[in-house]
Write a protein that binds this DNA or RNA. Structure first.
Length: 870
RNA sequence: GGGCGUAUGGCGUAGUGGUAGCGCGCUUCCUUCACACGGAAGAGGUCACUGGUUCGAUCCCAGUUACGCCCA
């Protein structure tokens, strides 16, 4: 409460411009906020005073679309609310410049490619700059070192980052722009490597030689999280195997893997094959003896019920191979072509001949050829049946994944460890998801994990796995005991730096060492955004104050990747949740309810709606959609937002135009008190909604109050506020003070949504208070203290009466300013005394010369007699 | 095939176990002393479908259908 001696802030003299407009507010205020450091994080605050946000780093090599504007606005609204409620908000911005999109963009833009075996070149100048970003041929690209490649990446992404930042500033994100990070910066590499080395030291990271899902285009291993099933055309081929008692027919979609066949399998309960289990059959063409085995995963009703197991046609083959302890006769190379040498097992002259013919062929050509051969030999019987079936793809790839045996790095994620899985589920229960049902997606993913997290990638651009391997006297690497760097040397690149105790001359020679050439999955870095954003290595003091974070905003599509992997790394590293709240935004759909995506070509560039409608308007549209709910791109909503912003400016100018007669500080009139009491309820409810991460409801409450305020209250009291209609000075002052008090509160309720319009108005009269965005969030008690609660509801009654006047005039097609000679207000007996209190205001606004108030059933204005108009 | 979500006037959306709100659009009007980037009044909905619980269901339960997303 203000004391009697000081003038309350809302009574400060106001200086509104003659003509108000939303035009130009963005340029004016984004500069002003920056100069005043309104959003700068004050690191002197204690942990309890800090609200920290693990902001999603946008991919800078992609382009922004309105979906980004949508979800980042949701976060900003929360940040602004928290800042106003007294928190010191840590709201950094990251740039994701790691990964394949950037790699490809740099290749095409500069005409280079990365070869980590090459040495670094000082002051390197690329062959050209500004490629058209269409794919250039690998053969035309100049090979350069990893460090040079990364430097070019940083150069290119720095440009993108500037554009992104400019857009975010225009949108009004209250980010502290001195707190940014990049996922490919030396610090990010060091953070990723340190976390990895910790995982290794604790036994959570390990290597394994295993069949691995492999993308032949990108020539890299692919993790479970990057898989997707796509329906593909395929065909069943019926092949005859030579059994002890004649032909055994199997059906396969992959006849080209016949040389990799290691067994036939049927279900243990399948009557038809009981006699064959334990016996051997011979493969057609290749004459290899393979056993007939039983396994529960064999499907009785699929094809002939018996299938061939190959190394490896699909993930089921891997399970059979592992569980049944079968030999490995892999025939596919990393390039997706049939290997030059026949696998062990093929020994017949004809078998070797056939294999030699297939060697070097792609899977596709090999299939064509082997079908011809099988047809000639009569082993392929019946018609080839075309089908459509789901096939595993790398989500960024366009060829089906193959399975090859490779040495890879993994991090334990609970896929093979029930205890860890249980712990992760427990952590998920402790995390407050907004909306709550999103937790189920997390739990489904954790429970559906089938293996550990494969983190090594056979790419060049990214965070190197920071280990070396000692070479023995024969030059064979010892993979079981990797050599690791000490943490103070991070970041390191094992392909250009030597491990402790060696120098470069020992690289690749017997008794020397080799560096690991693989890099990490980009999620291995992204999963550490709390550590990156918080300064785990670079600023431990700050890190202690912001971690665990308070909020992780993100999209629903990356719950299984980003959210899960971050929870995992945090659990492994510190045994706690990385944040206490996860706010999940929905999708932006185009007006036809289709998800916006680049491939559909229906993307809206975010600068356009901001240009057309203004930042406040675009923010209004975004904020009107609840978390977790998809929203349509709706320019109509933006127009509504723009109208709201304009109305706020105009209503404020009007409300501030009424002078408060000197000496008065009280809101004495019942209807004025009623308005303030109603607003107090709005403050209570809106605050509650915000605290529940329901910004939409907070906006709705503020908005609907505001429109009532302008449409009814302002109309009702303006004559009195002007001092007309026989109002006393005290009555005039009551209205003028109430208007200012209400405005003072409403502006703050709108500030998170309409940062530009609200700060503009604030600056007209709250000149000593600084930006509204550092003002205190309103409290209900500011309004309701000292008021008579029995006046609550009076404004609603006045509105009903006011509607009656308007309807009568509208029906008569008369102006709202038409004179009314007489009218009768009927009201329930209990309300008559109350209504008498606003009789004067009602007569003023309605231009009613004589108003009778009588008892009736319900509140109603009747017997309206309009003055004669010539 | 499994999981999750959604279904409310032409469109976009709130909401509640007891007469269904709002915005856009539409119709009819009204200006210019805050706002025509405005204001007023009005028309328009059997709350997807089928059952169940209940005195009463748009809301709770079960099932169906459609759509979206995720997973297999």
């Amino acid at each position: 409460m203000t004391t009697a001696s000081s003038t309350p802030a809302f009574l400060a003299p106001a200086n509104a411009p003659e003509k108000v407009t939303v035009e130009g507010l963005e340029e004016k205020w984004s500069v002003a906020w920056d100069e005043a450091g309104v959003y700068r994080f004050n690191r002197a605050a204690t942990r309890e005073q800090i609200y920290s946000i693990d902001t999603p780093p946008p991919t800078v090599s992609g382009s922004l679309h309105v979906g980004h504007v949508f979800s980042y606005t949701h976060t900003d609204v929360v940040a602004r609310f928290k800042r106003m409620t007294g928190f010191e908000v840590y709201y950094p911005m990251g740039w994701d410049d790691n990964g394949l999109p950037t790699e490809r963009r740099v290749q095409n833009y500069f005409g280079v490619r990365c070869d980590p075996t090459l040495p670094y070149v000082e002051n390197y100048v690329p062959p050209f700059e500004g490629g058209d970003n269409k794919s250039s041929k690998a053969a035309d690209q100049i090979a350069i070192s990893r460090r040079n490649f990364i430097e070019l990446c940083e150069k290119l992404t720095a440009e993108d980052e500037k554009q992104f930042e400019a857009l975010w500033r225009r949108l009004g994100l209250s980010v502290d722009w001195s707190q940014t990070y990049q996922t490919i910066s030396p610090d990010a590499v060091a953070v990723s490597q340190k976390a990895f080395l910790n995982n290794l030291a604790r036994g959570e990271a390990y290597q394994s030689m295993a069949p691995t899902l492999w993308d032949v285009t990108f020539r890299t291993a692919v993790a479970q999280a990057e898989l997707e099933d796509r329906d593909q055309p395929g065909a069943y081929h019926r092949l005859g195997f030579n059994g002890p008692d004649g032909k055994i027919f199997i059906e396969t979609t992959r006849p080209e893997l016949l040389p990799a066949c290691v067994a036939l399998v049927a279900h243990p309960d399948d009557e038809r094959y009981q006699g064959l289990f334990g016996k051997t059959v011979r493969t057609p063409l290749f004459d290899v003896e393979v056993p007939v085995v039983s396994h529960r995963l064999a499907q009785i009703d699929k094809g002939s019920g018996i299938a061939m197991i190959c190394t490896f046609g699909d993930v089921t083959d891997v399970i059979w191979w592992r569980e049944l302890d079968l030999p490995n006769r892999a025939i596919l190379g990393f390039d997706g072509r049939i290997l030059a040498d026949a696998p062990e097992g093929i020994s017949s002259e004809r078998g070797l001949e056939v294999f030699a013919e297939l060697a070097g062929k792609t899977v596709f050509s090999a299939k064509t050829r082997i079908v011809e051969l099988l047809t000639e030999s009569g082993d392929l019987v019946g018609e080839i049946r075309n089908i459509t079936h789901p096939v595993k793809f790398f989500e960024k790839g366009d060829k089906p994944l193959e399975i090859v045996s490779t040495r890879q790095w993994y991090i334990r994620n609970g896929g093979r460890d029930a205890d860890l899985r249980e712990k992760l589920i427990e952590q998920g229960k402790k995390l407050a998801f907004h909306p709550d049902f999103m937790r189920v997606r997390y739990e489904n993913w954790v429970n559906g994990l089938t293996g550990d997290w494969l983190i090594s990638r056979q790419r060049f651009f990214g965070v190197p796995i920071p280990v070396w391997y000692a070479l023995d006297a024969d030059g064979e690497p010892n993979f079981d005991a990797p050599l690791v760097p000490s943490h103070d040397l991070l970041p390191i690149d094992p392909s250009s730096q030597a491990p402790a105790g060696f120098d470069e001359s020992k690289r690749g020679v017997p008794g020397g060492f080799i560096g690991e050439v693989d890099i990490m999955d980009t999620w291995a870095t992204s999963s550490l955004t709390p550590q990156l954003a918080g300064g785990w290595i670079s600023d431990p003091e700050k890190y202690a104050k912001v971690y665990p974070f308070d909020l992780r905003p993100q999209g629903q599509d990356i719950i299984r990747t980003w959210l899960f992997s971050t929870v995992l790394r945090s659990e492994l590293e510190s045994g706690q949740l990385p944040w206490s709240n996860a706010a999940i935004s929905g999708w932006i759909l185009d007006p036809d309810r289709k998800k916006m995506s680049k491939s559909k070509g229906n993307v809206v560039v975010p600068a356009e709606p901001i240009d057309n409608h203004g930042a406040d308007a675009v923010r209004y549209w975004a904020a009107a959609a609840r978390l977790g709910t998809d929203a349509a791109f709706d320019e109509g909503q933006m127009k509504v937002g723009r109208r709201l912003a304009i109305k706020v400016l105009n209503a404020a100018k009007f409300a501030l135009s009424f002078e408060v007669p000197a000496g008065y500080t009280e809101v004495s009139e019942p209807v004025d008190q009623a308005m303030l009491l109603a607003l107090a309820d709005v403050v209570t409810e809106a605050t509650k909604a915000f605290e529940n991460y329901d910004h939409t409801k907070a906006l709705e409450l503020a908005e609907s109050f505001f429109w009532n305020f302008t449409d009814d209250y302002l109309e009702l009291v303006k004559e009195r506020a002007y001092g007309q209609g026989g109002a006393t000075e005290a009555q005039q002052a009551s209205a003028a003070i109430a208007l200012r008090k209400a405005l003072h509160v409403m502006l703050r309720l709108f500030a998170p949504f309409l940062p530009y319009a609200t700060d503009e108005v604030w600056s007209w009269w709250q000149t000593d208070a600084g930006s509204i965005h550092r003002a205190a969030w309103p409290k209900a008690s500011e309004l309701s203290d000292g008021l008579d609660a029995t006046n609550r509801g009076l404004l609603a009654q006045a509105s009903v009466a006011l509607s009656g006047v308007r309807k009568a005039k509208s029906d008569a097609k008369a102006s709202m300013k038409a004179e009314v000679v007489s009218a009768t207000l009927k009201a329930p007996a209990a309300q008559i005394d109350q209504l008498a209190l606003i009789e004067s205001d009602l007569r003023s606004v309605g231009r009613i010369q004589a108003l009778k108030i009588v008892a009736g059933d319900e509140l109603e204005l009747t017997d309206i007699v309009l003055a004669e108009v010539e």
